[in-house]
Amino acid sequence: MRMVSARLENFVKELASGELVPYLGPGALTGSVDTATQEPIPADSDSLILAMNNGRPMSPRLMWEFSRAAMDVELKRGRGAVHRFLEATYDTRSWTRSPLHDWLQSIRPPYVIDINRDLQLQDSYADAPHTLVRGIARTGGTDYRFRIHAYDGETYREVAQDEVDPSLPVLFKPMGSPRPDATYIASDADFVDYLTELMGGFGIPSFVKRYRTGKRYLFLGLRFTRDTERMVMSDMIYGAGSPAGWALIPEPTEKERRFCATKNVEILEADIGDLLAVAGVSDPMRELIPGGHEIGC
């Protein structure tokens, strides 16, 4: 345990300095609840499916992954139905902040990857200029699968790759978000288009490609049991250092161990609560942070 604590202490320092890039999965939102109902924010695949289907489970085939369920809804009610659900969830409703996001706000890393679709990361930088990169899919008029917005401390303005200020923090949300305007990667059809272009090099801005060379990552609240998250991660960390990073997974499966080994990512059997404790965060929700466990994983 002493060795784990020492590793976590190094992670805390390296996240703050930018030597280590936080890569946020659904577990990063643990502890965030609806301000009116105290209902946990839908973040992982199962909770998103249940929320989208009015609390009712879908068929076992569709329950396997949110993108499948979203594709089913899209085929029956249109793509707009999925996007309206995500906007109502992440833009209209009011949520408390997760303990991890509160801590990240206090250190403001220079580069963060967040595969969630909520606004907490952007809110953490709301009073500071930054660059926002979000994934797009099935969009005409461009060869790329991203949009870039510059934030001046008050408003967002869409910019081209060569207009980005390299001195500003970069928030990369490949699955999109509601702000400044809604864009999401959600259904199977979205992922087919996005991942194809991501693998072809058209899903990452050139300035990010340069910046990420040799970087190492800390995967927080992310399980590697589903193909979608694994494929996105593989391309997002292309050109990483050696090792590529570490993943906090309290009870990793053999499948996760094998995958992380192929990506040169070391698993540390700890969770987000352990990291926050080492960082000196005292929060009553800390013991509830399970490091990204998902039902049915």
Rank of each mutant, 00 (worst) to 15 (best):
E269G: 02
M71V: 00
V278P: 15
G153R: 14
A81R: 13
E254R: 14
E87V: 15
A88N: 14
A261G: 07
P26K: 06
I295K: 13
T228C: 00
L248C: 07
A240L: 04
I204G: 00
H293P: 00
F85V: 13
G80Y: 01
W246M: 13
F191N: 07
V232Q: 10
I295Y: 06
V12N: 07
D127C: 05
R210H: 05
P250F: 02
P26S: 15
M52C: 10
S32R: 08
A182C: 08
G78H: 05
Q120G: 08
D46A: 15
N54M: 02
L62Y: 07
Y23L: 15
S124Y: 04
M233Q: 03
Q38W: 08
F85G: 10
V21P: 10
A186G: 03
S59T: 12
L100M: 05
M285Q: 08
T196G: 10
I295N: 06
P178E: 04
I107P: 11
I295P: 00
F146Y: 15
R216V: 01
N116Y: 01
R216F: 09
H83W: 11
P252L: 13
L195A: 04
F259W: 14
P169G: 12
D235Q: 13
A277M: 13
D102M: 12
L119N: 03
G203A: 09
